[in-house]
Design a binder for these strands. Structure first.
Lengths: 212, 212
DNA sequence: GTCTATAGCTTGATAGAC
DNA sequence: GTCTATCAAGCTATAGAC
């Protein structure tokens, strides 16, 4: 039935997401994915054109949802400022906080996706193309808002600032555990609530210093 | 002769470094590496125990050099401040500027290494363990210096701030080209001189805002 | 939609001559 | 130190029965 088809397809996507996030696109075989999905190998090629197509669908599946939530968060902030512009910190919070909310509400569904994004963003092979395709239309909207909040900021400063934000954000949601080791346990990379509270403050200060 | 042995070994390491940086550990075969190194496949296993051992040696080869240069840069800054503590911006500059200097002096030798580090740092599989092993002894030294510059800063704020720094820095040196697309060409990810001038200012502002 | 079976190729790694 | 030859395993992908 149609329902079963959808279920199998989703199970494949779930399994692929988790394994791709852990080992990268080339680090995982279709066989491993289908073993985790508890389905036959050939079904991968019934539901998807190729391994690469499966990878793209994993990336795509949650991108639209995420873009939508972030856009709504930005619009909500702008609505609270009908006369003036929102602050830099408020805008960055609208960009980062939705990720935490998704994790809080549907942890296992989003955890691996964010790890995957971190790897893609930092890969010379995928980073430029895929991140641009899936996320940059929304990012341009946020850059516009930031430009309004920092009217005297030069474009080069603005874009480099966003670039720093992007690096900090994706590493944070990669949850590699490195900071746990470095801090001797005082900080936990899984404690995303405590970092999402700090990130907008940290990054807003950077934007403001660079843009004046 | 001994000289030739060294040369072959280095050629293998060079080829491996470039390919690992582009496609990741699992994205490259030993055969591809040896083809680029213009040597026989079996020589990989004469010089290295396994593919994984080759990967580790690639990571290790430049880590010591880099740690040494960064330490010297930090000591030079501290020497300029015999009475007081260096500023946060000066300390961060000592951490980031050496990477740019290495690229300026020996571009092709370091370019791929930095891309590799970016991927390793953001990988759940390697990030926690490898970065800790190769770099954290030096990073602890820098965190000490930062703590002295920000005596009222709580440890959690200090470590999260370093974490943001780490994400921004590694993404920058990954040179994925994403920011080129996003900015419509006004910013180039290969123009590292312009970013190294901005990064310490941006990040220092973040540390200072978070730590008071 | 799901299965079996398999083609055709590449992989990491080694044995052994020179 | 460098070569040829090869193994056993795993890989992506497809054909065809049901």
């Amino acid at each position: 039935m149609k329902n079963d088809k959808q279920k199998t397809r989703d199970r494949i996507l779930d399994a692929a997401e988790e394994l791709f996030a852990q080992k990268g696109h080339e680090g995982v075989s279709v066989r491993q994915i289908m073993a985790k999905a508890e389905a036959d190998v050939s079904l991968a090629y019934y539901h998807f054109k190729s391994k690469r197509d499966l990878f793209d669908q994993v990336m795509l599946r949650r991108a639209d949802i995420l873009n939508d939530i972030r856009l709504k968060a930005l619009e909500a902030v702008e609505k609270r400022h009908p006369a003036d512009a929102p602050t830099v910190e408020e805008i960055i919070d609208a960009f980062t906080h939705p990720l935490l909310d998704l994790l809080a509400r549907e942890h296992d569904e989003w955890k691996y996706y964010f790890r995957l994004i971190a790897q893609v963003n930092n890969s010379p092979e995928w980073g430029g193309e895929l991140m641009t395709r899936y996320f940059d239309p929304l990012v341009e909207r946020f850059v516009q808002a930031l430009r309004k909040a920092l009217p005297d900021c030069e474009d080069a400063d603005l874009f480099w600032s966003y670039h720093f934000l992007s690096g900090a954000l994706t590493l944070t949601f990669a949850e590699t555990g490195r900071i746990d080791n470095l801090s001797g346990g005082t900080v936990k990379s899984s404690d995303l609530a405590s970092v999402v509270e700090r990130m907008p403050k940290f990054l807003a200060a950077g934007f403001e210093r660079l843009c004046k």
